[in-house]
Amino acid sequence: MPLSLPSLDQLPIRHLGPDDLLACADLSENRGWAREEHKWGLLLAAGVGYGIDDPSGEGLLAGCVVTSYGPGLAAIGMVLVAERYARQGVGRRLMRHVLAEAGDTPLSLYATRNGQPLYEELGFTEVGRSEMLLGRFTGSEPAPERAVRPATAEDLQHVLRLDHEIFGLDRTHLITRLPAFADQLRIAEQDGEITGFAALWPNMDTHVVGPLIARDPATAQALIASLAATTDRPLRTDIDTGHTGLVTWLKANGLEQLTTTAIMIRSRPDLPGDWNRRFAPLTVAAG
């Protein structure tokens, strides 16, 4: 029998760290998600996890991760409740705890259709939508010609400056992890200036393109095509639906829509930075 609601309300919420990686992956698997241990490792190292232990000793009954970008924004991701405790108010309790911990810091998240009503109840507003795409990149619709090459250590400070300008906040703690986290990190440049960058990182049997930062859609296409040429795995990426041309190009090259999510924010009117040059997040779990 599941625990009664009063008992659930009394269970402590604790911080999660890298030692909780397998428990988080088990929780993902319990809800029918992929285990995504590689991604969990990054999130737990770069962010702060929150979890509730199952009193039966069977791992976590709920968890999430918050990735902070300073006082201007923090992103909530991987909000999960074990199936046996679903629809008992656990997710709402966990979210209220995270909101209290965040204080005045604005929060963002990507919401599924099922999760969106709860987030609206908690004060989040939809400010956009994202389309998850997956498939084997065919290259049948060529990308525009742009100079794209592997990033070097000397490029990192330039990449950080460009990312800060376009993302709108400092995410050095994530970007500096890309060389170790990703299988490929590539930059686009013109006349000696970096005009975009993108990473390709392994996630189960796919490769994910993200983050994807570029001067314009043509540069974004060139970065994706360059990354796709390095792998024989299916590609996955999350593109803001406002970038209709890029979405259409990806679908012409073999990727298909898996799902869409609502981009939501609380305590500020919109996301910071330049939406026109921000094409895909590193992962929706980190905003």
Rank of each mutant, 00 (worst) to 15 (best):
P6F: 10
Q10M: 07
P12I: 00
R14I: 06
L16I: 08
D20I: 04
L21F: 02
A25V: 02
D26A: 14
S28G: 05
R31V: 14
G32P: 06
E37Y: 07
H38K: 13
L42C: 05
L44K: 03
L44T: 03
A46I: 09
V48H: 12
V48R: 14
D54K: 03
P55R: 03
S56R: 00
E58G: 13
L60D: 00
G63Q: 07
G63V: 02
V65S: 13
V65C: 15
G70E: 12
P71C: 02
P71Q: 01
L73N: 07
A74T: 12
A75S: 15
Y85P: 00
R87F: 10
G89T: 02
G91S: 09
R92P: 01
R92A: 02
R93V: 00
V98T: 04
A100M: 09
E101N: 07
D104L: 13
G115R: 02
Q116H: 09
Y119S: 01
E120H: 09
E120A: 10
E120I: 09
L122S: 06
T125Y: 06
V127R: 14
S130Y: 07
E131H: 04
M132S: 15
L133T: 12
L133H: 09
L134W: 04
G135F: 01
F137M: 14
A143H: 00
E145D: 13
R146C: 03
R146A: 07
A147E: 12
A147C: 09
T152I: 09
L156R: 12
L160F: 14
H164E: 09
I166N: 04
T172M: 07
L174P: 09
T176I: 08
A180Y: 01
F181Q: 11
A182I: 14
Q184M: 13
Q184L: 14
Q184K: 13
Q190A: 14
E193K: 15
I194V: 14
G196V: 04
F197E: 03
A198N: 06
L200K: 05
W201R: 08
D205Y: 14
T206V: 15
H207P: 07
V208L: 11
V209I: 15
V209A: 08
V209L: 05
P211W: 10
I213E: 08
R215L: 14
P217H: 06
T219M: 01
Q221M: 05
A225R: 05
L227D: 00
L227G: 03
L227F: 03
A228E: 04
A229E: 07
T230H: 08
R233W: 02
L235P: 06
D238Q: 08
T241C: 01
G242M: 00
T244E: 10
L246Q: 04
A252W: 00
G254R: 11
L255P: 11
L258P: 05
T259S: 14
T260C: 04
T260S: 13
D270G: 11
R278L: 13
F279P: 08
A280M: 06
A285F: 05
A285P: 04
A286C: 11
